[in-house]
């Protein structure tokens, strides 16, 4: 469970990004954090990444207290429990799709036999198995996003943090990406999506929406 308890954080410019925010995201939940035109999702994302200390309040992510920020080996261990998809859908360009998906297993020293099996399962779910030998740099935007999500979730993290990486996607591709995230969520992995994109929010109207609106916090699904 992710717990934000009266958390405040200033942005890099010194202005207040979030102030006295409290909410909870339960295990296995799909949550969308949005603040159209505001910087609150980015602030929450930074806090959940574990490196940024909160100005005040408590941030607890699946038992790990990251309120004061983590460093070194603690941060590395924490990051192994959290999957991250960046806005630019970062992948290792000089590796193939298969190698990218196997990378988290190599980092965790998981035996290759088990890794191969789980990689294949994950790539089947992502629809990337036929492209496993293709270089990541040769992938299109949509495939790259799926690869990034697949790589972040293949080791079954406690929570998958997804930045808005949907820019430039067609409508069908957007639906596919959201469906893929929902399929991962159906496996019991909590998903937190940070997006201000109305098209995405429209596709997720049945999920839990956490929308920041100034200092207030609305938790109910919105009608788009």
């Amino acid at each position: 469970m992710i717990i934000f308890n009266n958390v405040s954080l200033n942005s890099s410019g010194g202005s207040c990004a979030i102030q006295n925010i409290s909410f909870r995201i339960y295990t296995g939940q799909f949550a969308v954090i949005s603040n159209i035109g505001g910087s609150a999702p980015l602030a929450v994302f930074c806090l959940l990444m574990g490196q940024t200390p909160a100005l005040e309040g408590d941030v607890i992510v699946f038992g790990s207290d990251v309120s004061s920020g983590l460093r070194g080996a603690k941060l590395d261990r924490y990051m192994q429990t959290v999957g991250v998809v960046f806005a630019d859908a970062t992948v290792a360009e000089d590796m193939t799709v298969g190698e990218n998906v196997r990378l988290p297993f190599a980092i965790r020293d998981i035996p290759s036999k088990e890794a191969k099996k789980r990689c294949n399962e994950a790539m089947v779910l992502a629809g990337l198995l036929p492209k496993s030998r293709i270089a990541a740099s040769a992938l299109g935007r949509y495939d790259r996003l799926r690869l990034s999500i697949c790589r972040a979730s293949v080791c079954r993290p406690n929570v998958l943090l997804v930045q808005d990486a949907f820019e430039g996607l067609e409508k069908e591709e957007l639906k596919g990406a959201v469906s893929y995230l929902q399929a991962i969520n159906a496996q019991g992995i909590s998903v937190v999506l940070f997006s201000n994109r109305l098209a995405v929010l429209g596709l997720l109207r049945n999920e839990r929406l956490i929308v920041f609106d100034g200092e207030s916090l609305r938790r109910e699904p919105l009608a788009f």
């Binding site: 991250v84 970062t90 992948v91 988290p104 790589r151």
Partner: peptide, 16 residues
């Protein structure tokens, strides 16, 4: 740099 960033995001230590 992007590789480092993505590997750090996967929890890889600097030495790895």
């Amino acid at each position: 740099r992007p590789d480092f960033k993505s590997q750090k995001a996967l929890g890889a230590s600097s030495s790895k």
